[in-house]
């Protein structure tokens, strides 16, 4: 079962790296925002894999609590970014 934990952890790292690549290399705002969110999802997946403590054992609750908090923060940050992007588009159309 140790391999399952590694599989999840490594996939998380891979997703985070792919997200980071999109966030850094794309010029389009929406692409970059989704990239940052993907990075977050990858990091959360690593944290969830960290919580595994072996077959038959309950998982460590602390990383799960961290992921929940992290999701709340990520959602609010994404909302702020989208609100700013809408205002920017509206002002550019007005100009």
């Amino acid at each position: 079962m140790l391999t399952a934990q590694w599989l999840y952890g490594m996939s998380g790292c891979l997703i985070a790296a792919l997200g980071l690549r999109t966030a850094l290399l794309h010029a389009c705002l929406l692409h970059r925002l989704i990239g940052i969110n993907l990075t977050g999802a990858g990091v959360f997946m690593v944290l969830i894999a960290v919580a595994y403590r072996g077959a038959g054992m309950p998982p460590d609750p602390v990383p799960h609590a961290l992921v929940l908090t992290g999701i709340v923060v990520a959602v609010s940050a994404t909302a702020l970014a989208l609100a700013l992007a809408r205002r920017l588009t509206a002002e550019q159309i007005n100009d």
């Binding site: 940052i36 944290l47 960290v50 602390v62 990383p63």
Partner: peptide, 19 residues
């Protein structure tokens, strides 16, 4: 905002490694 988010994500990745 985007730079700040990226910075916090990198920080969080380091935090999860430490945990």
């Amino acid at each position: 905002l985007l730079v700040g988010l990226l910075g916090s994500m990198l920080f969080l990745a380091g935090v999860s490694l430490i945990y």
